Simulated scan of single mutants.
Amino acid sequence: MSSWFKRKEKGIQTATEEKKDTPRGLWYKSPTGKIVESEELAKNHYVSPEDDYHVRIGSKEYFQILFDDNKFTEMDAGLSSKDPLKFEDTKKYKDRLKEAEKKTGLKDAVRTAYGKSMGRDLVIACMDFSFIGGSMGSVVGEKIARAIDKAIEKKVPFVMISKSGGARMMEAALSLMQLAKTSAKLAQLAEAGLPYISLCTDPTTGGTTASYAMLGDINIAEPGALIGFAGPRVVKEATGKELPEGFQTAEFVLEHGFLDFIVHRRELKKKINLYLDLVLNQPVRVEEVPEE
């Protein structure tokens, strides 16, 4: 065999067990194929700078964005789901709960907190899709109800950030009862004369859309968010019609009158406070927030 095919000098090599791959999470690839450094993505509110794609984020990131200096008091942090129906599918519900808690570090699919945003006292409830698809069970409904009670007690506005696949099937009717429960609490909030802003993020579907997500005094959404009750396939089968392009995107929903505004995540804090100033008939204070 020719020496061309023989490597006589190994030179500097690294043993296989010592080779290191690029650390996971260092880069992010958006659906349009744009590559961005994870650090840059975080600095840009988790929005891809080249194509403006809004990456899915959870309560941790939204609290960082909305609360002043990321300071807040979390409420009902220890509340967790049980398995009253002894639901069994391919995997027992109680095992799925344990697995989701271990994987995410969360107790359930929503976190609630009280703090200041642009100096204004505010109660925020934010869903986490990473916990069983952001599904709405008894704990989600109870935590949202308690958060609304806190807003009424403190006489402050309430903001709900939805990100959910819908009702949690493992809790059956108990899950569906949360639609009525949270809607009734929001009626109490309205009776107290306190504003409610609903932010729909990707995705906002099912029972979440059928209840609190669409009951805001002002309903807003992030660009490109999927918003709807049933999925496109189910709607198509039920209607027997081809669906229009962009069906159930935030832009489509806005065009057809189910949303008030679409808000870029970079403007989220300023816009929410602007809307609250307008609803409360207070002087507009958005100029107090420095440009980023």
Rank of each mutant, 00 (worst) to 15 (best):
S183W: 04
E50C: 06
W4Q: 08
K82R: 15
A15M: 15
V279G: 02
S59T: 02
R56Q: 14
V55A: 12
R285G: 03
S117Q: 02
F5W: 13
E142T: 14
D83Q: 10
V286C: 09
E88G: 07
T22P: 01
A187Y: 11
A15S: 13
M136W: 09
M214R: 06
D277Q: 07
N273P: 00
H45L: 14
K19H: 07
G207T: 03
A173P: 12
E237D: 10
T104S: 07
L41K: 07
S130R: 12
A109Q: 07
Q178S: 06
K143F: 07
I152H: 10
A230P: 02
I148K: 04
S211F: 02
P49K: 06
A184Y: 12
L189G: 01
M75T: 08
I272L: 15
V289E: 13
L268P: 00
I218T: 00
L280Y: 05
D95T: 08
A213W: 01
E267H: 12
P232S: 05
G228R: 07
E237G: 02
A184I: 07
P31G: 05
E245K: 14
H45N: 09
P49I: 02
D108Q: 11
P23V: 09
K154L: 11
G207Q: 05
T16M: 15
E39S: 10
R24Q: 13
E9S: 14
L194V: 04
K269L: 02
A213F: 01
D149N: 11
E153C: 02
Q178R: 09
E88L: 13
Y196N: 00
I227W: 00
T73E: 13
N44M: 04
A184N: 14
R146D: 05
E9V: 13
L194E: 00
A42P: 02
E292S: 05
R233K: 15
K20G: 03
G246P: 03
V286E: 10
R266V: 04
M170G: 10
D128G: 06
F67M: 04
G206V: 04
I218D: 00
L97M: 14
A113C: 04
S117I: 05
V284P: 00
R120I: 03
K98W: 09
L174M: 14
D202A: 14
K19V: 11
C126N: 07
G231M: 04
Y93T: 12
F87I: 10
T204K: 01
Y212I: 15
I132W: 05
G78S: 12
V159H: 07
T104M: 08
L189R: 03
E242R: 11
A172K: 14
E237F: 13
S81R: 09
F229Q: 04
L226S: 11
A145W: 06
A151H: 01
L97F: 10
I148D: 06
S2P: 12
T205S: 08
E40T: 09
G207E: 00
S30P: 03
D217L: 00
C200V: 05
L268K: 05
A230K: 12
R96I: 11
K181L: 09
D76M: 10
T32F: 13
P244T: 02
K86T: 07
F261M: 11
